[in-house]
Design a binder for these strands. Structure first.
Lengths: 339, 339
DNA sequence: CTGAAAGCGCTTACAG
DNA sequence: CTGAAAGCGCTTACAG
């Protein structure tokens, strides 16, 4: 990478002059066109690219801000990222700017390969989302110097923001019980995330406590395709068809909705659905029928991640320090309110 | 903001020692616990935050990379951002990393307030998305030094990646004509974007050419709520009900789908729908009925933005230099293929 | 119109 | 175990 010094040597000018031209201040400094041409030409030929760190170091305005990296696992569903970023933006706005958000995609299970988490010179702090069990394991032993907050994960040595996973499953089961459902099914996702297991287990356990039998527990790819394809498996056993289904994600539930339409099953009469609400709220509400969900407050969780990170940086808290957010049941037509 | 020098003064140690402790290298350098405590305590008390630019400047690894800001207007629909980022990530991966993506939200019409576009020290280059007419106007006269590519906008002085907006409207009209539709409606959005107008105008014009009457042209908020609420207005005139509708966005179309279900209108028999496909592909496919769309290739457009930006930086191209991407009709159940 | 010098905040050989 | 010095690449007074 060419530097200004090299451009100066190449053109026979001084670094000052080169810098002035490159900064677009040639005119106000009365530097003739010809000199500009020489500099610009040299920049092109030598492939000059300004070093941003050096520029920023000189500029108190640009130098001060906190750079916060958001590690987002690539394979996670897109609407979740949207909601997360929305919450983060709110949190940033609340603090009055001066923060830079760096989106850093990574691959689940390969967080250890992200050297930037160790280097200390890539960003000031990080929010790590969707870490897998392996990733968490690495984090434990790595003991990063960098301030880190985990989104939706718990750890003995880091700060984290979580939800009550067991409550999610329990709330759904309670709703079904209120409707006097008799037989429940679970539509879950292939997952690297232990929280999902907790939700399912809690749903099943609560069903049993409330006298609801639990029929098939099905695992599919976490997508609408997965949810749609699962419908036949769900209804396979015609003796013991479920009258209610707990879905691990919006995507699965929306896919299932389509599958059920195709089969001519009418909701909520023949079957009730409650999903974990981790997708776009509007898509839940304008589905046909609209989805009943136990909503994961992702925006608030993101906001809280940011707040925790700031307090961590300020030394006001020390890891581990967790915050657990409330979940809420939002009824829709797929499991209407009981009057 | 405290610096290492100040910490040194405060603790009575040298900057070197402070730096070593703060860098987590106390142990390997044999610095005693007590000294570490002193430094860490001072950092907390004085509110020390490492200056990232300075750190990066020292670290050739961290210093070299290109920092690219993505200006995304806040009010634009979320799924669009997802698709855009997906394409961008692909483009980055294709180049083999070394690039930092900075997400920079802004408010439509207020791009001029973004000082970082002028400062030259905030990032190396920018992709500007969803600029309004006012924003474009400002860009024209600002003549930024920074390399910039516009997403889905044309400009006499900047590079841009666009689609053929007229083709979008025309393709939809042609499909309806193939189905022998007689009366078309348009469900459009309140918009700051002239391209949307081009699409609608072209749809209307092509309809007329093909002998399709054009009924109500309705404008609503660009959301599912808007689309759903528009249905009654769409069907208002029972003498001259449309038998096909062109929707300006996925969100509007999905909302309309729900509204039509509520009214008991059966698709595609009673009404056909084609939407501009600017949302999540899976949501289009798993809607009931699945949506026919003229797809805007947002991922490819994002990828092309990135490529153009790199070539711009390398001096291989000069603004204005535009790329226009192809649109494609993807049939779904809301307007099935004609056999 | 152009250049020599200082300095942004940090880290890392190197010396003691 | 700790410190003095150099230098990363850049820009900006200042001097000529």
């Amino acid at each position: 990478m060419a530097t200004i010094k090299e451009l100066a040597a190449y053109t026979g000018l001084s670094p000052s002059t080169v810098s002035i031209v490159l900064g677009g201040k040639a005119e106000e400094r009365g530097i003739p066109q010809a000199t500009c041409q020489r500099v610009l030409e040299a920049a092109r030929v030598l492939g000059y690219r300004p070093n941003l760190s050096a520029r920023r170091l000189r500029d108190p305005q640009a130098s001060g801000g906190l750079v916060i990296a958001v590690f987002w696992a690539q394979d996670f569903r897109a609407p979740m990222m949207v909601r997360f970023l929305r919450g983060l933006r709110r949190a940033v706005a609340e603090q009055g700017e001066g923060y830079e958000l760096l989106i850093h995609p990574y691959t689940c299970g390969r967080l250890r390969e992200e050297r930037s988490l160790v280097s200390l010179s890539a960003f000031n702090a990080a929010i790590i989302c969707n870490a897998s069990a392996e990733d968490l394991e690495w984090l434990e032993q790595a003991r990063l110097m960098m301030p880190v907050v985990l989104y939706n994960r718990e750890s003995p040595s880091y700060c984290g923001v979580t939800v009550d996973d067991e409550e999610i499953g329990a709330l759904a089961a309670q709703q079904f019980a209120a409707h006097r459902c008799r037989r429940a099914a679970v539509l879950s996702a292939d997952s690297v995330f232990y929280g999902m297991q907790l939700r399912n287990d809690s749903f099943v356990k609560t069903c049993r406590q409330l006298g609801i039998a639990v029929g098939p527990v099905i695992q599919r790819e976490n997508s609408m395709a997965g949810g749609c394809g699962a419908v036949s498996a769900l209804l396979e056993n015609s003796q013991a068809r479920p009258d209610c289904v707990f879905c691990a994600s919006d995507a699965l539930a929306l896919g299932a909705l389509r599958g059920l339409h195709q089969q001519g099953i009418s909701l909520p009469e023949a079957l009730k659905i409650i999903s974990v609400g981790n997708g776009d709220r509007e898509a839940q509400q304008y589905a046909w029928p609209s989805l009943s969900v136990v909503s994961v407050p992702m925006e608030e969780m993101a906001q809280e991640c940011f707040r925790l990170l700031l307090r961590l940086i300020a030394g006001e808290i020390r890891p581990p320090f967790g915050r657990r957010m409330e979940v809420r049941y939002l009824p829709g037509e797929s499991c209407p309110p009981v009057e």
